[in-house]
Amino acid sequence: MREIDCNSILNKGRLETKGSCSEIATAIAKIDKLVSVRIPLQISYTYAIIILLWAFSLVIFLVAYSGSMEKFGNDLFSMFFQRNTFDLKAFGIAAAFSISICLCFRIFFLEKKLVGGKKIGLALASIRLFGCDMGKGALLQLSLDLSAHNKKEKLTHKNKQGPWTISHYYDPWLRMSGKMTDGTRFNLLVAERFQSRYRPHKRKSIRERSTTITTVKFLAKPGTNCQLNRIRNKAGSLVGLPTWATLKTLEISNTSLKLTASTSEKWSFGAKPVKGSVDFLELIALAMLSLYEILNLANQKRNA
């Protein structure tokens, strides 16, 4: 796996890689640290510098010019346009103002990099979760899209309802696939389905709704003759998903299982989710456990 350049990924907003699970986890952890610690810290520092520059300018303005805009304007004009004098005080204020404008641009670009913070964290947590059952050098393929969900290329269709125009977006931002140590292959997809309702006439208004969907697919180890269709009557009872999630489909075929679930709740992830949000990793983990229980049952039936 070639070295992952964290900054270029944050600038591009996309990461597609294939490599060993631990290497990818290390790279994503680096990006996560950058997004969750370093960039917010850089933004805080930049804000602090701007405040100091403004305070410095204000003090000089009040002390040297007694708060008179006219005096300050005259000095500035004579320095920059007549060029016959050099006024250090006016230059200092002008320089502080210019630097603070540049720093505002810096904040703007830094904040653009923060868009995918939650996505990076969930991707890392998912890699660690699947990585528990993958071998040390097992290959993992990952595609992580950090760009905004309402980009033009993610628009699937538009329709009208009364005066409203509804734009439907589909953003499959996390895809992961690999093989576990027992030979079972998995695919994970996390997607955002987003609707934006817009009324151009009368009073302009925009309303938005989103649903997060996850699909977990397991493919039984080739050659195990795992007869999944034999346990069709029991498969449903083995599904255990959080109450805040909705099961969309459970597809069972001879050798594969696919579970799709969705939620409209605000989500975070990990053992301590943010207050008022649900743990999305729990949905992924429980979907995995549900599918693996079904696979186990199919194997037991085969051996019986």
Partner: peptide
């Protein structure tokens, strides 16, 4: 190994 087997988009 590790290939995306198919587009598993649930739509």
């Amino acid at each position: 190994d590790g290939d995306f087997t198919e587009d598993i988009a649930p739509d």
